[in-house]
Design a protein around this nucleic acid. Structure first.
Length: 831
RNA sequence: GCCCGGGUGGUGGAACUGGUCAGACACGGUCGCCUUAAGAGCGACUGCCCAAGCGGCAUGAGGGUUCGAGUCCCUCCCCGGGUACCA
């Protein structure tokens, strides 16, 4: 019974066992040792999973996609590196430990085991010899090593800064990890605290991170997101002097052309000089109150856009460097300490925020840029949009275009020593300290005598100690591990204490794709020559949710390491593909609270891995979101069954006419046999085109469906032709449904499909002798006639004009023009 | 607000650089065959309207360019994502 129908529970384990036993997907780093190693390399990586519980449907999609790409590259003759790893440090395991007391390592390792089982069960072609997990000392030893290298180079440093603090997770967060004023992980409102923390100097790389986006083949929207995040602004720094106190205050502006309109000056509440400025004035008390209120406000409220402008005068003035006027100083929370210099020149006539403030405080509004035509709109700031506005009220610059004026004013400031061209970025340095347990320890020691001392490389890894209590209490749980914390200073041998913060887990995942290349190296993080052979990653596949965080951090790491000559590429991921989400059957994002979560394992158990994989690829364009549909999945399952049955019936297994090894293309097919053979070549061509760069897996699979439909339709065709076509279908489907592809191909040919090169479409088989010529009159189809392929224009025109449908519609009209599209259509324009 | 995507049948989605009456492939639906029956399988039909034709209307709405527009241009509406007091 089971022999006679498609039975994935029989087929899938059979092939999985072969692939595991023969280590089919392992590749060697010994380039040049054998002819096989001379092939062009292709490095295909899916973003490594965070192992938590069981894999979900998004993982299935991610790895089904990556696996199809990896298989395709192998079949077209490339040497493919396709490894797997686990992003194993992180808060969920730690929070679980707090609740249950189960060590994060225990729960993480269990999850990893579940993921490993799933990947084997799904038949993903992974080189298991390179598997890694970021929580293993053999891995994080090198994470620490990279930290030390960054430290040596001044790219890792400590500073006290206003940082985002999540009171729920009891840890600090990087800017990128604060979403709408809330913690990216737990959703709790974030507070601002003044703390000394570790940072990576990613801002040093802002320009390169921006410029090099032009060199990589990434989706445009992801590049745009990164560009916006980096936020480069070109402008000028202009100095405003407070004469009373004799202090210069530089400000950054993108609109130096509006300098004559600067009628007041505003500082951020966090600005270190605010109290000093107000001291001794009548505003001292109100300023204190205002600043204290502003600083204690939750981040979410502080950043709310639509709130009325508030502030206090500081009782001091600064000199506008071009007008010489004394303009009043204010403190207001609409100025951010983190951006620019923490102070701004306010031009109410041409900046909406300054306008709102000026109105609220009754300050003068002086227009200095006139619209190209008409009047500036009343009741709001006039923000110039074109190159045609002219400067007014601007002394010697009056009458210049705003663009020229900008240049001229900056030149003047430069000559006078009152300003210069400047660039500002939105990007901030990456805050990497976390006051948590389950992360990579920061390899630094504090010595009373020597200060901050890096742990010597020979002492790495600094292993995580065992602790009894994972509960964070504003400091890392590591601080409680006294035996671990107290060490000898590596420099002087005196007593010292370890750094107790751990690293942001994005550090772990910023370099794992380097380690894959040389995963078992215990002498170094990697061998530079080995990296040279594999890097960059040719195709990276993952979710858009990492468009900024992970992808920016990894790019920074690669550039920093390249600068230190540890590797030879400037970008980690040459091409990126971002997959869409699988939504629940109700079209909403899957979530436990919605109760619409589909787990992949029961699906795989019921329909087989091949059906689950094919369905997920068939559902629609892989970069788009798609809702899960069980009935559609059944349709794909039926299709696989139809292909299997063709293989079964056409091979010797059914006791029919078939014979193994005879699935070659027939010599001179004709009639239905020719039609089927042609369809096979059409499918080869279509699938190949859909797979190269386009990742149109949905249409690729539909092409194989069409081929299978035709093999059924022409059941009477020569069996040789049908065997050829069926073997071709199996071969084309292999990247998506590897078990069935291998099975059917073996039934028909006795050979292993993954060892066969990708089929070539015969161009002669793609064209037919005749085609259906579309005959249009005034753009409307009026008839269709058969015409010989490649016929000259005149002949097509003649055929069209002779067509009956055309004749009737031409009756009584004059032919104005005839448009001929060779091998397609003829359009007669009639009057 | 700004920046990206995207609006095509009952549903998911096809349609290469504007060119075969748009709707591949699949789901769902209807009918039939096979079967004692169920299931599975196989086959046919399936955008809308209609006086049923060599007919009309249809790719969010409205204009435009063109012999020809889902595809290009303009205006607007809706949905999704990113981002936002960044000077």
């Amino acid at each position: 019974m089971s022999e006679r129908r498609y039975d994935p529970t029989r087929i899938e384990p059979k092939w999985q066992e072969i692939w595991a036993r023969e280590r089919t997907w392992e590749v060697s780093n010994q380039v040049g040792a054998s002819p096989l190693d001379q092939r062009e390399k292709a490095y295909v990586v899916e973003m490594l999973p965070y192992p938590s519980g069981e894999p979900h449907i998004g993982h299935l999609k991610n790895y089904a996609l990556g696996d199809a790409i990896a298989h395709y590259h192998r079949r077209i003759g490339q040497r493919v590196l396709h490894p797997m790893g686990y992003d194993a440090f992180g808060l969920p395991a730690e929070n679980y430990a707090i609740q249950t007391g189960v060590h994060p390592r225990t729960s993480t390792d269990e999850s990893i085991a579940a993921f490993q089982r799933a990947f084997r069960r799904w038949g993903i072609s992974i080189d298991w010899s390179r598997e890694l997990a970021t929580h293993q000392p053999e891995y994080y030893r090198w994470t620490q090593w990279i930290f030390l290298k960054l430290f040596e180079r001044g790219l890792a440093y400590r500073k006290e800064a206003a940082v985002n603090w999540c009171p729920n997770d009891q840890t600090v967060l990087a800017n990128e990890q604060v979403i709408d004023g809330r913690c990216e992980r737990c959703g709790h409102l974030v507070e601002v605290r003044q703390l000394e923390q570790w940072f990576f100097r990613i801002t040093d790389y802002a320009d390169r991170l921006l410029d090099d986006l032009d060199t990589i083949d990434w989706p445009e929207h992801v590049k745009t997101m990164q560009r916006n995040w980096i936020g480069r602004s070109d402008g000028a720094e202009v100095t405003f002097r407070c004469e009373e106190l004799g202090i210069d205050y530089p400000v950054f502006t993108t609109r130096p052309d509006t300098l004559f309109g600067a009628t007041f000056f505003v500082m951020a509440p966090e600005h270190p000089d605010v109290f000093r400025l107000a001291a001794g004035t009548q505003y001292e008390q109100p300023v204190h109150e205002y600043v204290n209120r502003a600083l204690s406000e939750p981040v979410e409220d502080r950043e709310a856009t639509e709130k009325p402008k508030t502030g206090e005068p500081l009782g001091r003035t600064v000199t506008n460097p071009v007008t010489g006027e004394q303009i009043p100083m204010y403190v207001s929370d609409y100025v951010l300490m983190e951006y620019g210099t923490g102070a701004i020149m306010a031009v109410p006539a041409h900046d909406q925020r300054d306008y709102d403030f000026a109105v609220a405080f009754g300050l003068p509004i002086r227009p200095v840029v006139a619209p190209a035509e008409g009047e500036a709109p009343a009741g709001q700031a006039f923000v110039a949009h074109t190159a045609n506005e002219r400067l007014i009220n601007s002394d010697i610059f009056t009458g210049m275009s705003a663009v020229d004026g900008q240049q001229a004013i900056v030149d003047w400031l430069d000559r006078e020593g009152k300003g210069h061209p400047s660039v500002s970025f939105r990007l901030r340095d990456w805050l990497v300290s976390r006051q948590r347990y389950w992360g990579c320890p920061i390899p630094i020691v504090y010595c009373g005598r020597c200060g901050m001392v890096p742990v010597p490389e020979r002492d790495l890894p600094v292993e995580l100690p065992e602790v009894d209590d994972y509960q964070p209490r504003g400091r890392s749980p590591l601080a409680a591990a006294e035996n671990w914390v107290n060490v000898r200073c590596p420099e002087c041998g005196g007593s010292a204490r370890r750094e107790t913060d751990t690293m942001d887990t994005f550090v772990d995942s910023s370099w794992y794709f380097l380690r894959y290349c040389d995963a078992r190296n215990d002498k170094a993080a990697w061998d530079r020559q080995v990296l040279k052979a594999w890097m960059p990653v040719d195709q990276y596949i993952g979710g858009v949710e990492h468009a900024i965080l992970h992808l920016m951090y990894a790019r920074f790491f690669i550039k920093a390491l390249a600068d230190m000559h540890y590797l030879d590429v400037q970008e980690p991921f040459q091409a990126l593909f971002t997959q869409g989400m699988i939504l629940g059957p109700d079209g909403h994002k899957m979530s436990k609270s919605r109760g619409n979560v589909i787990s992949p394992m029961p699906i795989v158990d019921r329909y087989g891995a091949d059906a689950a994989r094919c369905y997920i690829l068939f559902i629609g364009p892989p970069d788009q979101d798609a809702a899960w549909s069980e009935t559609s999945l059944e349709g794909v399952h039926r299709f696989l069954g139809r292909l299997w049955r063709l293989g079964y019936e056409l091979s010797g297994d059914a006791g029919g006419a078939g014979e193994a090894g005879a699935a070659e293309q027939p010599e001179r097919p004709s009639g239905d046999a020719l039609t089927v053979v042609r369809k096979a070549h059409w499918a080869i061509d279509k699938v190949s085109r859909d797979l190269t760069g386009r990742f149109a897996f949905n249409t690729a699979i539909s092409a194989v469906m069409e081929l299978v439909n035709d093999i059924y339709r022409y059941a009477g065709a020569d069996p040789e032709a049908r065997r050829f076509a069926t073997a071709t279908a199996a071969s084309l489907l292999f990247p998506f449904a590897p078990h069935l592809g291998a099975e059917v191909y073996e039934m028909l040919t006795g050979r292993r499909v993954w060892e066969e090169s990708w089929p070539d479409a015969d161009p002669d088989m793609l064209v037919t002798d005749t085609f259906e010529l579309v005959c249009q009159v005034n753009g409307r189809v009026r008839d269709r006639v058969r015409a010989p392929s490649g016929a000259p224009r005149e002949e097509l025109e003649r055929l069209c004009l002779a067509a009956r449908g055309v004749q009737t519609h031409l009756d009584g009209h004059e032919i104005a023009k005839v448009i001929v599209v060779p091998d397609k259509l003829v359009n007669v324009v009639a009057r």
